[in-house]
């Protein structure tokens, strides 16, 4: 018979993968199909409408590139936070998660500046299909980013008092996913001509 502790909780890890990580994998698989579907549909339209590159030229490439840099560095920070948890350096994990929150806030501010700049030029979601896609895709991404920030903030508060350190890894996985989505959106929306 297994150890008495296991017998009492009737909660097993048959695959050897922690249950939380396994659940996160499946969640991200589902999320992949949401953004995958959206990006696939965008590509279909994009091939049909080569003239969209003229609209894409109105996006601020520099802002997009800067935001890409920011997001990649926050992903690095989340990876470092996870590594710190493994070494039991919770203070370091908290600091890295804090950096991520600051970075994400900068990202959203830049994004808000871009939106207002584009609105001022008269490019709104109903202008044409390119702008519809642009606002839908970046908006959905920003919503995911915001959700991740809330999760990180909650976990950060817990880790500060020594609780739920294992969740740093799971929210990190999610964060890398949101980052990866942006790495697809940036070239497809800003750079492709």
């Amino acid at each position: 018979m297994a150890s008495s502790g296991q017998q009492e909780s009737l909660s097993y890890e048959r695959t050897g993968i922690p249950t939380g990580r396994l659940g996160m994998y499946w969640f991200l698989a589902g999320e992949t199909t949401v953004f995958g579907g959206l990006i696939f549909v965008y590509l279909l339209y994009r091939w049909r409408n080569p003239e969209w590159s003229e609209h894409a030229a109105h996006l601020i490439d520099l802002a997009g590139a800067f935001n890409t840099l920011i997001l990649v560095s926050t992903s690095v920070a989340m990876a470092r936070a996870h590594a710190a948890v493994q070494r039991d350096r919770l203070d370091l994990a908290v600091r890295n998660m804090g950096f991520t929150l600051v970075g994400a806030t900068v990202f959203l501010c830049v994004k808000a500046y871009e939106y207002s700049h584009e609105f001022a030029q008269g490019f709104v979601p109903s202008t044409n299909l390119f702008w519809s896609f642009y606002y839908t895709m970046t908006g959905l991404h920003a919503a995911h980013l915001l959700g991740g920030m809330v999760a990180i903030a909650i976990i950060l508060i817990g880790v500060r008092s020594g609780r739920n350190a294992h969740r740093v890894e799971y929210v990190g996985l999610y964060w890398h996913f949101v980052d990866t989505v942006w790495l697809c959106l940036f070239p497809l929306l800003y750079l492709a001509s």
Partner: peptide
Amino acid sequence: GPLIAGAVMLLLDRTAGT
């Protein structure tokens, strides 16, 4: 997943003029 994306698009068609 793809239908969730599609439903967001339908919702925007109805509310945001896309």
